[in-house]
């Protein structure tokens, strides 16, 4: 099974899995920390709400519209 990293932790995924689905099934199952410090998880699942924006290989992208790739570095706390 291919593997990526979420906040430094390895995560194995099935081909075609979205980064949002990966985030929601690993770690604290969240995608970002809000302005007032709340942890948040994907909400709309379709590229509208921006709750799932994470750093993927250094760029901020929407997890729900990104497919997991081998070796991706995903960060939810930056």
């Amino acid at each position: 099974m291919p593997e990526l990293s979420i906040d430094g932790q390895p995560f194995r995924f099935a081909q075609g899995t979205t980064v949002a689905a990966a985030l929601m099934s690993s770690g604290d199952r969240c995608s970002r920390t809000s302005v007032s410090g709340q942890r948040r998880a994907p909400l709309c699942g379709m590229g509208i709400c921006q709750e799932c924006r994470v750093n993927i290989d250094g760029l901020r992208r929407l997890a729900c519209q990104t497919i997991c790739r081998e070796g991706m570095q995903v960060q939810t706390r930056s």
Binding site: G16, T17, T18, A21, S25, G45, M46, C68
Partner: peptide, 10 residues
Amino acid sequence: ALQALIKGGL
């Protein structure tokens, strides 16, 4: 959203 996330592998 839940439906989409499940289809996406959740």
